[in-house]
Design a binder for these strands. Structure first.
Lengths: 119, 119
DNA sequence: ATCATATATGTCGTTGTGCGACACATTGAC
DNA sequence: GTCAATGTGTCGCACAACGACATATATGAT
């Protein structure tokens, strides 16, 4: 195994990978999708987006693909696809999220426990 | 409302707040607790820990408390307690984690959907 | 006695990441 | 003609995590 751990992913990375999960897309579309997908909470700036895309390319978590809409009217667009590695890392991250959440809820709710907050 | 959003928290921050949720503790104990609590995944370095603690103090998410064990043999220890603000932010973060995870699982599994991975 | 390990807190420099600001080009609506 | 939306990109700032280093006491083993 070359890398011991890639986790945790940043929220930006997670959302970009997730946005690419159903199929290939391009920068601007990812930006908008991440916004809806995050319930309007996350608005990626272009600096964040293109920086992250290049990083993900270098890491091999996403790959370049031919523009799916290369018709006459459309101007330049660069499309990306989630790689197999990217997909499995995304799943690892979601597992992390899930287990962290579970453990945390246990700590927070254990009826009749702690709360040593000055008696 | 003074701040629009504090989220997302970093994993480090989340785990520290979570470690303080049941009751006050001090640096070294938090370090060890975070390790078990994260299922041995996260080993905080002291640089991260004390940097984070000071940041959290400044933000008012945690507070200093008297050392609960100031007996003779024990040496200097600084104890911290989760503040009300810190507690509610932790809960917000857990809600974020939960909803992100839910949304993501929907995207990833919706049997018979996407996977436009070269037909 | 001495040595290693655990407990305990802290600083410093490097690196990665997010982000706002800026820049530029095309297309469609008014 | 002009404005918003689409589309890609760069640059510099700030902040967080991290490893390395520094310091000191307590405990258990040899």
């Amino acid at each position: 195994m070359p890398e011991t751990s890639n986790l945790p992913l940043t929220e930006t990375t997670t959302l970009i990978l997730l946005s690419l999960a159903p199929g290939p897309s391009h920068g601007y579309a990812i930006m908008k999708d991440v916004h809806t997908l995050s319930e309007e909470r996350v608005a990626l700036s272009t600096g964040t987006l293109y920086g992250a895309l290049n990083r993900l390319l270098e890491q091999g978590w996403i790959e370049r693909v031919d523009d799916p809409q290369p018709n006459s009217t459309r101007r330049e667009r660069k499309a990306y696809r989630l790689s197999a590695v990217g997909r499995s890392i995304l799943i690892e991250e979601l597992d992390r999220l899930e287990s962290l959440n579970t453990i945390a809820r246990q700590r927070l709710s254990p009826g009749g426990y702690g709360d040593t907050q000055q008696p």
